[in-house]
Design a protein around this nucleic acid. Structure first.
Lengths: 164, 164
DNA sequence: TGGTGCTAGTTAATATTTCAACTATATGCC
DNA sequence: GGCATATAGTTGAAATATTAACTAGCACCA
């Protein structure tokens, strides 16, 4: 827990500070840009992530909680998002056979029909704002570093599932 | 504009795909973790960013719009956030002398008194989840890459101020 | 069995964010 | 000056997200 209880704090060096701020600002700008591009297709990035994951899952279906973990959203948020997507006719809910508490979200034909366009848009967007801005090595390294960060945060023991 | 109008789409390679997903997931997890740590001090990360910027600005004051650009929030959002912070007594509004449309947000003594604790918490949090997870070189490179991304997105010509 | 505790998902209330007006002031141009 | 347009910031309503309760079903153990 980084709640601070230690008396001494190791402040960031100016370089570290600068790097951290760059990260924070860039990540926000990136999110905004990706969201805006996708908005032309009437979707938010966070919604797109859900249907996108569904589209790659076997049979286009996935458990709510698995989905929540995958896209890093709270369970409650996924419920709301799913309701929205359902209203659009892109997904439907189905009861789980093996676990009667469970619900599977299923991609509909109509949903699948939309995905191609959105995916194209999203990929172009990612290329434009991220890939084209970095060298291939820089991008590769970025991926590796973020993977390390993800693994550290996803450790069940520590800060674990911060999201319920 | 990555709105897609070109017929052919350059899809991501599996490696690129993986790196991008890692980024997306890690950035969300990071945000959640930092937010949660700061929550012990009754603040959101986005709110902390505002007071933090104020605390470093000369005289602890800054124009609303400058603040909005700096922390990458819409003007409207900053207005609401400021109202919240004001209610807590951490900041106050002051009319601008030179530009009568303008408003400056000013950090109060009470606000300043809280910052130290939050900053400590935040730094610990950043160290724990980010710095300690990467090697110094990895972190440095991450900073550089994100800076390039930020610069590309902040270019006034292109995707420019996506935020009003 | 029955009890205890855990997991899955939803719900309602609340908080925050976005969106689209809207006011007021500044700026540039004739 | 006077008009047109741009900028600064706010506002209220609608959309979205978070929080804390709550229901239901599973799982284990005695």
């Amino acid at each position: 827990m980084a709640t601070d209880s230690t008396p001494e704090t190791r402040w960031l060096t100016p370089d570290e500070q600068q790097a951290w701020r760059a990260y924070l600002r860039a990540s926000r700008l990136l999110e905004v840009a990706l969201d805006r591009d996708l908005a032309h297709h009437g979707t938010q990035l966070s919604e797109y992530e859900v249907v996108s994951m569904l589209s790659e899952a076997p049979a286009g279906r996935m458990r709510m909680s698995a989905l929540a973990d995958l896209v890093v959203q709270s369970r409650s948020r996924v419920t709301h998002t799913a309701a929205r997507l359902e209203k659009r006719g892109w997904v439907r809910r189905e009861a789980c056979v093996d676990d009667r508490r469970g619900v599977e979200l299923v991609l509909t034909e109509q949903g699948r029909a939309h995905i191609d366009d959105m995916a194209r848009c999203h990929v172009n967007s990612v290329r434009e704002h991220l890939l084209d801005v970095l060298t291939p090595e820089e991008f590769r390294d970025l991926g590796h570093s973020m993977q390390k960060i993800r693994d550290a945060l996803a450790e069940p023991g520590q800060a674990g599932d911060a999201i319920r």
